[in-house]
Design a protein around this nucleic acid. Structure first.
Lengths: 138, 138
DNA sequence: AAAGATTTTGCAACTATGTTGCTTTTTGTT
DNA sequence: AACAAAAAGCAACATAGTTGCAAAATCTTT
């Protein structure tokens, strides 16, 4: 079930380091998205804040994770599906934030709907975030 | 065209002060949304940062403005339509961020689409942010 | 397997952003 | 005009995020 962390790093031509293994491991072992703060907490204060920032940034650049904008304005990160390549994300799915447990889910099966924009507007990307109660909390 | 700032404040039972008049004026005199930083800059460094924060907070509570989550994770504020009441917002429209001029628009006529969520999920609020080129920049 | 080049980490310092408590000033009310 | 209530301003603090640089770890080459 759990994909090999080292494998993923190698495939993205990243050197295998302790922090990268641990941080990537955190993403693999749980369903929701993680905010920067979550990672620092769950990792047990092992590494520096700066390292977390830089690692997340690297993962985003490589297309391993993607960012999710949330209403409360904290950036969250979640694993990308395999069709994300370096510098080119394809996360055209809807995100769901549970107001009870505050877990953020990627609803990979729910595709972002088409929008009829007013004349003159052209959209290249549409972000949809739904808020409510998730299946575990109802 | 420009609504009376004092009128709006009175209608929301807010005392009329210099900062509130100026900040509300900024929102009325331009089409897009404003971030906290924009307000501090455009106001010409007249008042304290804290005042801006508290004024914006008051306006949000009263339903005069609403917040817009953006991809770059900076909160933006925009005027609410008249059907927003104290503590109860109705901003069920789509927001549009221009990648060129980075102005954020409220597309009041574009209603947030319905979503078919997976079983077990119930959404109370859906936020849609489209990114692209606006009518002035194309 | 060791040496050297390259990355990554961790530290310190700094900037930006946002919050809280308290005093002074302004506003609304009588 | 006088008083009570609310808002503004100030200082101090808290959190988030960035940058430069030296030390440590990783990768590569032999």
């Amino acid at each position: 079930m759990v994909k090999d962390v080292k494998e993923i790093l190698k495939n993205n031509s990243l050197s295998i380091t302790g922090s990268r293994e641990k941080i990537l491991g955190l993403f693999l072992e749980q369903p929701g998205a993680l905010a920067h703060g979550d990672i620092e907490k769950r990792a047990g204060e092992k590494f520096d804040r700066v390292t977390v920032y830089r690692t997340l940034q690297t993962f985003v650049e490589k297309g391993i994770i993607h960012t999710i904008p949330t209403a409360d304005n904290s950036i969250r990160y979640a694993l990308c599906k395999d069709d994300c390549k370096e510098g080119h994300h394809h996360d055209h799915h809807v995100h769901f934030v549970c107001t009870k447990c505050s877990i953020t889910y990627c609803l990979d099966d729910v595709v972002t709907p088409e929008l009829k924009l007013p004349k003159g507007y052209t959209s290249s990307h549409i972000e949809v975030v739904a808020e409510g109660i998730c299946k575990n909390c109802k």
